[in-house]
Design a protein around this nucleic acid. Structure first.
Lengths: 161, 161
DNA sequence: TGATATAGTTCATCTGTAGAACCATTCGCC
DNA sequence: GGCGAATGGTTCTACAGATGAACTATATCA
């Protein structure tokens, strides 16, 4: 695998870079938002757009928050006429969420601005480095959503729910 | 620099990986927090610890938020007896923030747990990949805190304040 | 049919954030 | 030296997002 001491050092570097990254990037993204739309609201819009439609439960799962948080965000977006709720007629408990025309327009627009923003920074790297980076990053994101266990011998029933 | 089409594709991949990463990692970190300490509060503690001491203004700068947000966090930490405020006797406007004994203990403890947590994921990569990754990541974090302009020809007075 | 699970909402409560108003102090400069 | 501007920090109000528990309505399963 990897030398334990080096690993520890990399982790420590990762922690501080991550911290800067999150805070700073979030601030930059916030600046690109139109009046009266928050970053989280945009993220929600964007997720729905990427899926075409989805449910509240799915959003809660993906965003790693409780369903009541989603309800709050959704109703704000609904009040702004950016999304529609359409009930499933098979299962009358579920309501699907879709973007309205305006929601679509807005999401596309902001998305473009974010692309411009990010390319201003990503442009610093050459093709090889950028590709290598994004691949590791995606792998990391991937293992992060795994339940956790992979090297535990057996009898580990904790953790995954 | 880098092919425009490829760049755009990388950005798009980055956006979605970043999204997953932030949400998921945040949830995992939250699970490591002791009762009655939030992730932001820990981040504040940790930053102060890394510096030995610091001011509210510095925190506001680093966290990319207004000073009033910092005041709020600081007073909660103060109420929990995790930090001390000590006035500078040169400049009587500024008060330095330091960890208390208990704050120090708590920060160290959580920090250890985060290291364990992260090593569970980082352990997936070999030395070369991990090193390469963290280097690009740090570079990215670095350019992110730069004022922005680097390739603008001239007469650009916007943006940096 | 009846217990249980699931989808989603509502409510109370808390944290973090913004922004404006404000106080105290220090700085710049005439 | 003194006065206006800048700086460090707090307070206040308002709001977004998060939690967790209680609740409704519907579906599933045995």
């Amino acid at each position: 695998m990897i030398d334990c001491k080096l690993l520890s050092q990399i982790i420590s570097r990762y922690k501080s870079a991550m911290f800067t990254m999150q805070r700073r990037l979030n601030a930059l993204i916030r600046d690109e938002m139109p009046q009266d739309l928050t970053v989280d609201q945009f993220a929600t819009l964007e997720y729905i757009r990427s899926r075409g439609q989805c449910t509240s439960s799915e959003l809660a799962e993906v965003f790693c928050v409780g369903k009541s948080s989603i309800t709050a965000i959704i109703s704000r977006l609904f009040d702004k006429s950016l999304i529609r709720r359409l009930p499933d007629d098979k299962d009358r408990r579920v309501t699907y969420l879709r973007l309205t025309e305006e929601g679509e327009r807005m999401a596309v627009d902001i998305d473009g601005r974010l692309e411009t923003l990010l390319s201003r920074y990503m442009g610093h790297f050459d093709e090889k480095e950028a590709t290598q980076f994004i691949e590791t990053y995606e792998k990391l994101a991937h293992v992060l959503v795994q339940p956790i266990e992979q090297d535990a011998p057996a009898g580990e029933e904790k953790r995954q729910e």
